[in-house]
Design a binder for these strands. Sequence first.
DNA 1: TTTAATGCAAAGCCTTTGCAACCTC
DNA 2: GAGGTTGCAAAGGCTTTGCATTAAA
Lengths: 143, 143
Amino acid sequence: MCDFYDPDVNVTDTVTSRLANSGVRVTGARREVLRAIASIEGPFTIEELAAALPEVGRATVYRTVKLLQESDFVCRMVLEDGGIRYELSQGDHHHHLICSQCGRVSEFVDPGLDAIIQANADRRGFDLAGHSVELYGLCAGCR
Amino acid sequence: MCDFYDPDVNVTDTVTSRLANSGVRVTGARREVLRAIASIEGPFTIEELAAALPEVGRATVYRTVKLLQESDFVCRMVLEDGGIRYELSQGDHHHHLICSQCGRVSEFVDPGLDAIIQANADRRGFDLAGHSVELYGLCAGCR
DNA sequence: TTTAATGCAAAGCCTTTGCAACCTC
DNA sequence: GAGGTTGCAAAGGCTTTGCATTAAA
């Protein structure tokens, strides 16, 4: 579901060059949004992103995030309460641990989990295109 | 996450009596909403529910579903696209297979999957309160 | 009779869209 | 210079809320 980034290169540069290669214009606003996303650690909301970018119109923030999402540079996650957060795409497919107390989201990878999910889909004749696993509770720091 | 229903008793009656016992008034509108929910097979949207209840105000539909949700008689699920659906609470904890084509949602239970999720939480010092697993793709009928 | 529940309409949120001005390429 | 982008404001969805009326208990 999510793309890889070359760990040796600045994320913002990587994305802008890929964007340029795909025929999309690299504008000031887009650079700003990318910089803001890169500077935010972890998942973010449109609200947070827009707050960090007072000089960029909200509509542009929405449009840019959508663009990045469609290009797989960021991926979207839906929280337990229906709230939506985005995050820079990580290299590998992963799942989320969401703390109900502090709201922090951490990630984990478990190929065994993915395999068992695939097996469940197969067993029911379901052609699996994707899946999401979210764990809710208290993180180590909040418990 | 979801409650049990006594399989020998009509769901609507079960809920209304439990509701009454908890000091909530059993009104005509609430009975109507319950009947509509029971008659819809599988998960439903507020939209669908309201459409099935032209004589009940939309605000009441929202309020009643919220009430039922807070009482654990229905549970809420968030789809891949952020859309929200509700369903009568099932006895056991389960997961969803959501067809991207026809939108139908089916359920499955897999204790092994739940165990592996719990193990991941434990491994990271996370106090697990709940989790959601949603599979997206094409159902057997649509593929 | 008391007071929770209802229904309507208005208000709130969040997100998208129309459009003229603007900026990449 | 041409056409994709931006920003503003308006419009759209969906959900909640205020309030007078209605109806459970």
